[in-house]
Design a protein around this nucleic acid. Sequence first.
RNA 1: UGGGGCGUGGUCCAAUUGGUAGGACGCUGCACUGUUAAUGCAGACGGUGGAGGUUCGAAUCCUCCCGCCCCAG
Length: 378
Amino acid sequence: MGFRFELLKTDRFGARLGRMHTPHGVVDTPAFMPVGTAASVKGMKQEALEELGAQILLGNTYHLYLRPGHELIRKLGGLHRFMAWPRAILTDSGGYQVFSLADLRKVSDEGVTFRSHLDGSEHLLTPEKALEIQMALGSDIMMVLDECIEHPASEERARKAAARTLDWARRSREAFAKKTGESGAWGQALFGIVQGGTFAEMRKQSARDLVELDFDGYAVGGLAVGEPHALTCEMTAEVTPMLPAGKPRYLMGVGKPEDIPDYVRQGIDMMDCVLPTRSARHGCIFTSAGRVLIRQARYADDARPLDILCSCSVCKRYSRAYLRHLFMAGEILGAVLATHHNVHFYLDLMGRIRQAIEFGELTEFSSELRLRLAAGPG
RNA sequence: UGGGGCGUGGUCCAAUUGGUAGGACGCUGCACUGUUAAUGCAGACGGUGGAGGUUCGAAUCCUCCCGCCCCAG
């Protein structure tokens, strides 16, 4: 059973309801993918992720290559078996680390040379190497290596990065065809990545060029790196119409809960973000009434659950006062419970978004959500 | 009783043998967008145990008092 995307519905604004079939199960779209960079969604057991209904996780090529090593993971039966996650996995190529590890790397046409953030050793990541690693991991959806640039970036810089990304996409596509040809296709997918900074024409061209290469899906990268939300939306809106309707579209690295319906409305099917997990560890709880910064003094004697309207196991059992205490005391459980809640919040939100599309009321849902989240917790 | 040492924001400590007090933690708040992140940033709080003296100037020097610690009896 190969990779397949089933488009179930497109509403009048372009929001889509779909179903992605992968070698490791179905993913209902629009989907949110919890980030599990190092084969772990920090602070969460796989059991919990399954219970919360996560259908796909994101892992990272760069991190898993450095530690524990992709060959080791291959030997142990691939990433799914290694981390005991039976559902789908998308692996990021390491392209984002070109951006996030800016002072530890050197980019050339050949690829990216990283100095490991773990031990300082040097490693060359080429498009071919990134693909090879992802093959070894056995990921369901592989991403091409791309060059993600900072914001703001000059037109010249964006052009160079987009050109390099396209060249790398070509090389990746070629290597992928060769590899899957050799080993027989087991249905993994390869996604291309649109770049082009904040320049609409460049982004459109990047999308057109990528479509010619015929990927299984298309990602929009290099956004949500500091630019205003309106600009993120604008860039996304320019790009999605260029992409084939029958293939999934993945907006990389987003987003805030209140912004997610905006992306969906522009025809985005997949998203991932560290916000729910990282924020949770830092004491920022997403609730139906906005963010709760759990360390604030006001919660010291608050016996209410994190989110009064939430049905997750944390909200059913624990109080804000207890969570605050755990954070103040530096107890790991605080991060664990907060992460569980936040991931539940995101996955639940996606379910509601899907339902809203189905009922044709995403616009109403979106504005209501924004209002509710802006209201602030009691 | 004698000898010695020490008293600095809530806590623990700094401050070139005088130049108008700084850090850590804590506290309060904020930020996190394909995770180098159980992280980062910001802010508030003391005029240095008390009284007096020397000096242009004292946390630093002198005198007395108060409190604590150590040693010896």
